[in-house]
Nucleic acid binder design. Sequence first.
DNA 1: GCAGGGGTCTTGACCGGTTCAGCGACACAG
DNA 2: CTGTGTCGCTGAACCGGTCAAGACCCCTGC
Lengths: 338, 338
Amino acid sequence: MTEDLSPQAAGRRVGIADVAARAGVSLGTASKALNGRGNLREETRARVRAAAEELGFAPNTIARSLLSGRTFTVGVITTDSYGRFSIPVMRGAEDSLAAGEMIAFLCDSRDDPIREQHHLRKLLERRVDGIIVAGRRTDARRPLGHDLPVPVVYAFAPSSDPHDCNVVSDERGAARLAAEHLVKTGRRRIAHITGPHSHASARERADGMIEALAGHGLDLVGEPFFGNWTEAWGRFAAAQLLRAHPDVDGIFCGNDVVARGVTDGLREAGIALPMQVGVVGVDNWDLVAEAARPPLTTVDLGLEEIGRRAAELLLAAIDGHPEPGHHVVAGHLVVRES
Amino acid sequence: MTEDLSPQAAGRRVGIADVAARAGVSLGTASKALNGRGNLREETRARVRAAAEELGFAPNTIARSLLSGRTFTVGVITTDSYGRFSIPVMRGAEDSLAAGEMIAFLCDSRDDPIREQHHLRKLLERRVDGIIVAGRRTDARRPLGHDLPVPVVYAFAPSSDPHDCNVVSDERGAARLAAEHLVKTGRRRIAHITGPHSHASARERADGMIEALAGHGLDLVGEPFFGNWTEAWGRFAAAQLLRAHPDVDGIFCGNDVVARGVTDGLREAGIALPMQVGVVGVDNWDLVAEAARPPLTTVDLGLEEIGRRAAELLLAAIDGHPEPGHHVVAGHLVVRES
DNA sequence: GCAGGGGTCTTGACCGGTTCAGCGACACAG
DNA sequence: CTGTGTCGCTGAACCGGTCAAGACCCCTGC
């Protein structure tokens, strides 16, 4: 009978007023009891908590946000459609955000500035506490906007404004890790096959490689082979390289896809891997690295860590402690058989 | 001077009260003017709009939600970490949601029921209007919960409760498309190499294949080769198949990764592709399908379409028009060279 | 001249919580 | 017996919008 008067039966969702009524206290007291604030008798607190439990009370975050001005939400804008790079970044970010009881809105801008501005607007209307921008290329990008009312952190793809907060991978460091591994495994005649020269990551990895080899008194064999990020290019370039420099004994590839093409090209040219030539890639994209023959040794850029750091920096900025500038996340070598 | 009194200078964000003051109307009038409601002179409406424009007014969705009870947000819970399957589904869902002016919260449950319940709770606290559950396997999964206060749609991975709203791929249809293509291109001795028997998708595609071939008066060559979803298995199974049935002239593979392994295995055994043997995969995972030699002909399961449909059904359910049951999305064949 | 009516705008309640001033009761000191 | 302080709770304002009810003005018709 009295069931008919219960909020659930009435189709309404149970609110703090229901909890207060059930516990026989005022609305304000119920609020304090549930949030551990104010001076209340422990017995009252327990009674309110029990009532909340019995009614299955879930606080309405919306109402709370209205007053506090904080929503405990952030927006994540990805420029590539949740591709190879933004996904691990997002996963890492979600990790850190969850630790701060925050949750992320996902927006895919598909590299379209109009779409991006539209999403930005929607996010601001929803009063997100902050925004993470994740890109798929390491080239600097136009900032999201000026004088935004919330902090922004750029992950992987940095903003062209150095005063923004950017979390980036250590491109030269990745090349250095690869160089060190190749040298340590006895390689001395090392070449480089990579993606398009128009990509900052391709250029930086190449420069880093040359620099690192120089540190060991070595020169790169030939010029870096710039091409594109495909297996076909890797196969083609490997064949060319062998023709020009049959004595090559190590190859650093700009990414795993190219590296896989290179291993196939070498194997089909009758080269025994890893005995005659050592190959190192970049990305640690397990699908590619583990399917290659032999499985690829590769540099993991630490994308998840980039996401985590970005979220941590965003949380700090939201709390009033911004740390603008470039934050470089180190990668690490994953040794497999190549 | 008066600038110092502006809301921006005061660090506050501009609210509808600021717009109303600037336009010289009351708060309620400003609201009506901006939302196109009520009876107002066109001149007043224009004046308010102009004021809003000048101040860069962005309505506070939070306040609006509090009264209306709708947040125009949905939760997307993915069981795999934004992997191969949930990503296109999410992209499709975002498409449809954006059309309804909605935005998605992203939660990754990592196949952990505890995590999933935690996310569910957080989403309900945030008063999402609905929830999409996206999984990576076609096997039925335990429902998210009972008597949830918001509608739920399951995408790709259906709920085990048939009264739930599920959007699923057409597994048997995929096999039929593959069979038809192989038969149409003159293949008659067709085999099947696929993933683990424990996966519903592997079983259904195998059954669908046998059924479709029977429709053409053909039998499958040998038993289906159940294994796992790896290239290595594809290569191995291809070699075995050739030994047992050297006269095979068509192979339907359970997915693209296996198909790629199969093409490599066949090529290395000296088989000319696609002249001697035709190969068809499933997934249309461009990275794999295009890198294979020759590029794979494959069935696209229409994952984006599944995401779109799921979001549309969710929006309908939110509007009070639920359509429970199984909604099957057809795939399509993508013809490449294999 | 005044009632009636339509068009235009204002006022105030409301959504569901949080927070703070204040109030009653009781203990204790003077 | 009164003044003061503390404890535990209540009541109301508030966040930023929306919306229904009503106030006001001007025009029309009798």
